[in-house]
Design a protein around this nucleic acid. Sequence first.
DNA 1: GCCGTTTTCGGCCCGACTGTTTTCAGTCG
Length: 590
Amino acid sequence: MQNMEISWAFRELADLLEFEGEVFFKIRAYRRAAKVIAGLEEPVVELYRRGTLARVPGIGKNILAKIGELITTGEMKKLQELRRKWPPGILEVMALPGIGPKRARFLHEQLGVTSLAELEEAARQKKVRALRGMGVKTEQEILRSIELVRSRQGRILLPLAREIAGELASYIQDTPGVYKVTVAGGIRRWQETVDEILLVAAAEDPEPLLNALAAYRRVREVLVRESDRMRVQTWWGVPVELRVVGLPAYGAASLWATGSAEHWRQLQALAAQRGYHLDMRGLAGADFPSGNDESVLEDAPAPVPPVPGAPLPREEEYIYRRLGLWPVPPELREGRGEVELAAGGVPPRLLEVEDVKGDLHVHSDWSDGANSILQMVQRAKEKGYRYLAITDHSRSLTVARGLSLERLQEQHSLIKELNEKERDFRILTGIEVDILARGGLDFPDEVLAEIDVVVASVHSGFRQDKETLTSRVLQAIENEHVDIIGHPTGRLLGEREAYALDMERILEAAAKYGKILEINSSPDRLDLNEHYARLARDYGVKLAVNTDAHDLRRLDEMPYGVAVARRAWLGPEDVVNTLDLPDLLRLLGK
DNA sequence: GCCGTTTTCGGCCCGACTGTTTTCAGTCG
């Protein structure tokens, strides 16, 4: 039983209890446990066996017992009971923006709504507006939200996709007769979200691999089975496709399965021009010379590369070279001009994780972070960083225990003290200052002037109109003490649309005032996204790739932001936190 | 539910916004 599954069980438990109207604190305790478990670095099963799980904050007697139940029986009685009691669709209803437990319950009682489809039907028949406490606007908002949810249905975020793909790939890898396995598709290209997981395996005989996949404990259903491919539905709800080829076809199959479709189409066209024929069985007329050479088995890379920019399998590289191209990194394979680019000159130097010398947006337990400043610093050092900016929330964000002026000053004197003991590392004082709903910033200029790194972010008034929101952000950009605009568009993937912003005006202003825009690496944000990041560079705006980490583990999410930068064709020179400390300080005007 | 004790139960939960109201409930960050 993986941490993720245990965490999910408690989240579902909390959701169902919330629907039932259980007391707030109990629900919050379960949610906290779910979050804590998801953030644990060690397997819960291990901690449980060792008897140290109860020491984890947020896990008391009751939750410990439920975890024990999950580990030993694979089920949790309380959860099963609730699942039997309520239709599964009500959780989707409750998850709609603007619909909480009370309204979900009310809709269930008054209209018999048990699913999104039924709610949609009721709203279309104008039955929702007739209910007490709801009106036309609510009804329209519900229909809009359902539309949003539909559009993202079936797509999962990259970290989950990577985890599932890694688990399956290593399982397949262990099947006898397998030479190597690659995770391909959108995962390999570091797309924001994916709707399927594609695996390519090289083996003499596909049969045992397909049998193995069909028998995997988290495969729910075999959707398609052919002699060399299988498509299955999994326990996680995301379909997985495995394609098995012989070693000589491995490079072509991996290229094909990695895509994108457009990139592949352009490669095929180029091959035809050069008198070859390229399909997923290989590059006819130019086979990989050592296609059956046992030595190809030795350089098999990890199925799920930990960072973007991993070396290509040499069979892929060979095909690019034969087509007169330099090998195109998977992140660029979107058919957005990379094939033309790869036909001439030298490859661009794209940003790499190793270029990053520090993180300029992280939280500590002074506001809503889980770890102390020292713990965050320690981890930053382990990552080889030279600096770390502690940017806790400002006073207005009370839910996040935003810092009062006094606490801010207290924190900054602590940081100054800590810095006296540091060598070759600098803790930068910082703040994530709220861009207030009424305009202006949460701290006065004279306070901001004293801070090394000022990140300004919107956390309220998301639904204001475009003009209002744009002018709020413009005001922040024009403030001489602001350095970085944090998660500039405010989107939460699959949860909340970006707020209405006139991005061209924002980019113009950022260029004019020399302000840095953030690429927030949090996988549910990735904000700016790759399109705006590229646009920003075209405007001459510098970017900062930050994690916005609220705990130690999320400091590790830097690769996701780096992937966005790479997909935007950015190099180290476009990103400020590749600078050495003195250069960075100069840029910040410190 | 958990936590922290002042060891056995009380504290944890804030404030703005919105749409619906006739004075406020529900949602959300």
